[in-house]
């Protein structure tokens, strides 16, 4: 009598899994070879020395530069805030058009709304900024529009998912009173999605502060412009100060966002 052998998977299943892993490993190896070919390894081996050099030049920060970054910092916050507000205004109707249960027209309007959301999400804020700078010119306006255009997708998606997940009996009850479709939205749907809506807004605002800090690199306003200029001029103490300012803004906005979201829930 032979002792039965316990195996977690059948032999064939095991093979399929091994093949999957092998295939994945091949892809990664290929990717790595690609990157390695495009890399000047002398620079890489030199990196620790470079980093040490850079760090030593970065300290201490140049505090006297502070007044020069106040306006850019203010612009950065404004880009994030106004951009987020604009996105809320634009994304709300799109979300209602995209949600299966509130879309007035499933054949054309819903796919259209979903397409807008997908395109807006696929393209990063910075790429939007890159495009908008060539169209509306460099400055805060390009930044605001870039933030808004990317946030529409983020908002639209989370909001329409929230709309699709509402409790349908609440809106059914409003329908049963003889309310018009607009009233069913206002009473049966809006109150249910309002908390999600507020939470997502604040969360996205927090992300947008982070994003708008780098928009200046492509000329779309805010503190990124100073950062980029200081880096290209190798003015490292200035760079340190700018980084501190950005980190401060990010930490504060994250704190505000967390507090507001906690208050809503």
């Amino acid at each position: 009598m032979t002792t039965p052998v316990w195996r977690r998977r059948t032999t064939r299943g095991q093979w399929a899994i091994w093949c999957g892993w092998l295939f994945g490993a091949l892809i990664v190896a290929q990717g790595w070879r690609f990157i390695s070919d495009a890399t000047l390894w002398d620079f890489v081996w030199d990196a620790p020395a470079q980093a040490g050099d850079m760090l030593s030049r970065m300290i201490p920060p140049r505090w006297s530069y502070a007044p020069a970054i106040l306006k850019p910092l203010w612009d950065t916050v404004n880009i994030a805030t106004i951009g987020t507000l604009l996105a809320i205004v634009l994304a709300t109707p799109i979300a209602f058009l995209a949600a299966r249960n509130t879309s007035p027209h499933a054949g054309i309007l819903r796919p259209l709304a979903l397409a807008i959301i997908a395109v807006s999400r696929s393209i990063n804020t910075l790429i939007w900024a890159l495009l908008l700078v060539t169209i509306v010119g460099p400055g805060v306006l390009a930044g605001i529009l870039a933030v808004a255009l990317h946030s529409i997708g983020f908002f639209g998606k989370l909001l329409y998912e929230a709309i699709e997940e509402i409790d349908p009996t609440q809106s059914e009850a409003i329908t049963a009173t003889g309310a018009s479709p607009a009233q069913v939205l206002a009473y049966g749907v809006v109150p249910q999605v309002l908390p999600t809506f507020a939470g997502v807004s604040v969360y996205r605002w927090d992300i947008n502060i982070r994003e708008s800090a780098v928009l200046g690199i492509v000329g779309a306003g805010g503190i990124g412009l100073q950062l980029n200029a200081s880096v290209s001029k190798l003015a490292w103490p200035q760079v340190t100060l700018i980084l501190i300012a950005i980190l401060g803004a990010v930490v504060v906005s994250e704190w505000v966002s967390a507090r507001v979201r906690a208050a809503i829930v």
């Binding site: 009996t169 609440q170 059914e172 009173t177 009473y187 249910q192």
Partner: peptide, 14 residues
């Protein structure tokens, strides 16, 4: 026609 529901179907947040 007034309707009354099993799970009440009130607008919870109002």
């Amino acid at each position: 026609m007034g309707m009354i529901f099993q799970e009440f179907a009130l607008i919870e947040r109002l």
